[in-house]
């Protein structure tokens, strides 16, 4: 019984995703599976997926990061400024990467050296970063790539989807390799599972945490860049609820928030796709707004309950 239960459990998240897709295909009479819809689902899912895949390492090694919203907004804004000043996509990409890495490194150092309840600190950090963006942007509140020094090439709907695929598939493959085919993945799982055992097995927890935060930084940079190219502008309220979306995506992807051996890279992508299909499917039904939100909450709780059926303790979880 132990073995079969183990494998079934690993596929729960995918069952959850398939159920949501099938349900909305029927409910929207196939509209959700049309070409445009698939492209739009990808466009919507891209940001959450990239950031979630990157965060798998952070949550996996037992850390916690609810400040993705603020980090993403800061990265996109500073990237946008660089884009306008230079007029070149390459410089904009570099600026995004630099900002994301600096912020993630600070969070990594903080997580590695300062002992503090990370989930409260990162929630507060999220609010602070969003407020800092407002302070930086001052009165002029939206950055438009159109008034860049040299015109930045714009991409139409289909080209944009192509860029999305390349970015998503590329980052996902790199993370799969990093997680499953190098020592990092195993170290993350062991550190998340039992920090004392990790120390006594000779794993350097500081390095693991720093690398994990750096990878999540790359995910944020990519998400910001793709958003800038697609929307060609960024406002101070961009990415506001990415913090909760990432957490919901990872949990829907079947990953425990405390990390450890049950960490899965696929949780990032499956969770992001599930929540995107859920959100866009609901708004496509054209229901009353209150019913949409109740429906979303109920489906979210149901899928999370199913996905996390596996790790029960007799003590109430904290």
């Amino acid at each position: 019984m132990k073995k079969s239960w183990e494998t079934i459990r690993n596929y729960f998240p995918i069952f959850g995703f398939v159920i949501v897709v099938v349900f909305f295909s029927i409910a929207t009479k196939g509209a959700i599976l049309s070409g445009t819809s698939l492209q739009s689902l990808l466009n919507q899912a891209i940001a959450t997926a990239l950031v979630s895949i990157g965060s798998v390492f952070v949550f996996g090694c037992g850390c916690f990061d609810m400040s993705m919203g603020g980090t993403l907004c800061m990265t996109a804004v500073l990237g946008g400024y660089a884009g306008i000043a230079s007029g070149s996509i390459f410089v904009m990409a570099l600026a995004c990467l630099a900002t994301a890495l600096v912020l993630s490194l600070l969070k990594g150092l903080f997580a590695a050296y300062v002992e503090v309840p990370l989930f409260i600190v990162t929630i507060v950090l999220g609010f602070v970063l969003s407020a800092l963006v407002l302070v930086i942007m001052g009165t002029e509140t939206t950055i438009l790539l159109n008034d860049a020094v040299k015109p930045i090439p714009s991409f139409n709907f289909t080209q944009m989807s192509a860029i999305n695929i390349v970015a998503l598939a590329g980052f996902f493959i790199v993370c799969v390799i990093l997680f499953n085919f190098t020592a990092l993945g195993r170290k993350v799982k062991i550190l998340g599972g039992n920090p004392v055992t990790a120390r006594q097995t000779g794993l350097n927890s500081v390095n693991i945490k720093l690398i994990s935060f750096i990878i999540s930084g790359v995910g944020v940079a990519l998400a910001a860049l793709v958003a800038l190219l697609r929307i060609r502008s960024v406002g101070s309220t961009y990415g506001a609820d990415m913090g909760t979306d990432v957490m919901i995506a990872l949990v829907l992807g079947g990953m425990p928030l405390t990390g450890g051996p049950r960490t899965r890279i696929s949780a990032g992508i499956i969770g992001a796709l599930t929540i995107t299909v859920l959100n866009s499917g609901l708004s496509m039904l054209g229901l009353d707004l209150a019913i949409i939100q109740i429906f979303r909450a109920v489906i979210y709780l149901a899928v999370v309950y199913v996905a996390s059926m596996t790790y029960r303790t007799n003590l109430l979880p904290r």
Binding site: A183, R186, K187, K189, I190, G193, N194, V196, T197, A198, Q200, T201, G202, L203, G260, P261, R262, Y311
Partner: peptide, 21 residues
Amino acid sequence: DHEALVLSASIRDNISSAGLD
């Protein structure tokens, strides 16, 4: 159980964790 092993991990993850290098 608290210092030498990660109970929720597999035998494979536990044994290979010390010999990654």
